[in-house]
């Protein structure tokens, strides 16, 4: 997250990236990967050259050759200056390498070289509801600027619903005054995986930790084939795990527009505002234990990078593995 905000969002870094092929990756993608695959072997070779010495646990911003040489970079996620230095160092090193040293002897073959991951085919449902979540701390005295609860940081995630799941955000009958409770996956996924979750290390709630969660939907207008609904609710979660005793207490307010003929949301804004409390065991966090936190949901953007799967997608149960 720091690297996203302080490094990869720096205009100088963005400009210099044109001289590279930019790639994102997650070491977890290789947990159950096929070791005979060229992709695995290259990433293994690259991470062996880092301070981590192996794929598992490796993180950072690195400059690498297609042949798998690490020629610059470091796990410096907060310094654009440091990254720029490493990028220039990498460009110089790349230019000095022979073609045979910097490139593979042949073009990669998807059939034999590519590592398959559980998220490889993850795409949002075409006729469902695709939301973007932004979570951010609100100003409070005592929260250090390096604390990710500080308002200068934001957390980003996506929230996907199938068409039938998304319909639960609306009353069954779309008439002015119609009211209903939002239940099922619509509320569960939002509450368990997003409300008060994105404070490092991003711990989702278990079902029995949701002390209370309600969200009502009321049709407030029906015009030109579009129903407008108002959302209102509250939620309180309190973790009771061995190393997690956090809690979050919030109110929810929002609205949405639903196109009746197209059967899809054309606008969606839902804001959760409340207080997040760290667990008693988190004694290494300076400042107030309880701090205000906002979580905002809206329709996802259509930038290529907005297609990133939800952080807890493995818990959706759509791929046949994992479910809350």
């Amino acid at each position: 997250m720091r690297s996203r905000q302080f490094v990869c969002n720096d205009p100088r870094v963005i400009a210099l990236l044109e001289r590279f092929v930019p790639v994102v990756d997650n070491p977890a993608n290789y947990n159950q990967a096929q070791p005979e695959r060229l992709q695995y072997q290259l990433v293994s070779r690259i991470t062996q050259q880092t301070e981590y010495g192996r794929i598992s646990g490796a993180q950072g911003l690195y400059i690498v050759t297609p042949s798998g040489r690490l020629i610059a970079g470091v796990n410096s996620h907060s310094s654009a200056e440091r990254t720029l230095t490493e990028m220039r160092k990498g460009l110089d090193a790349y230019a000095r390498l022979s073609r045979a040293d910097r490139l593979l002897p042949r073009a990669p073959d998807e059939r034999t070289d590519r590592v398959t991951t559980s998220l490889a085919d993850a795409t949002p449902p075409r006729d469902g509801l695709n939301l973007r979540m932004v979570s951010r701390g609100l100003p409070i005295a005592g929260v250090d600027a390096r604390d990710t609860r500080h308002p200068s940081f934001y957390k980003l995630d996506r929230l996907w619903y199938r068409k039938d799941e998304a319909r639960a955000f609306l009353p069954a009958q779309l008439a002015v005054g119609a009211k209903a409770s939002v239940t099922g996956a619509a509320l569960d996924r939002l509450a368990l995986m997003h409300l008060g979750v994105f404070i490092q290390p991003n711990l989702y709630w278990h079902r029995n930790e949701v002390q209370q969660a309600t969200l009502t939907s009321e049709v407030t207008a029906l015009q030109n084939g579009v129903a407008t609904v108002r959302f209102e609710g509250s939620a309180r979660m309190a973790a009771n795990q061995q190393y997690n005793h956090r809690s979050f207490d919030c109110e929810l307010l929002g609205w949405a527009n639903y196109h009746l003929a197209q059967e899809k949301f054309t606008a969606f804004e839902l804001l959760a505002l409340g207080t997040h409390t760290m667990g008693a065991e988190e004694t290494n966090v300076p400042g107030p234990r309880t701090a205000p936190l906002g979580v905002f949901f809206t329709l996802n953007g259509n930038n290529h990078n907005d297609g990133t799967p939800p952080h807890f997608f493995r818990l959706y149960g759509w791929t046949g593995t994992g479910r809350l």
């Binding site: 690297s3 790639v23 994102v24 993180q59 980003l156 799967p309 939800p310 807890f312």
Partner: peptide, 15 residues
């Protein structure tokens, strides 16, 4: 050269 952004989770989303 490849600019390799390696982090837990996808750095463009929840991480």
């Amino acid at each position: 050269p490849i600019f390799y952004w390696l982090y837990f989770g996808d750095p463009r989303g929840g991480c």
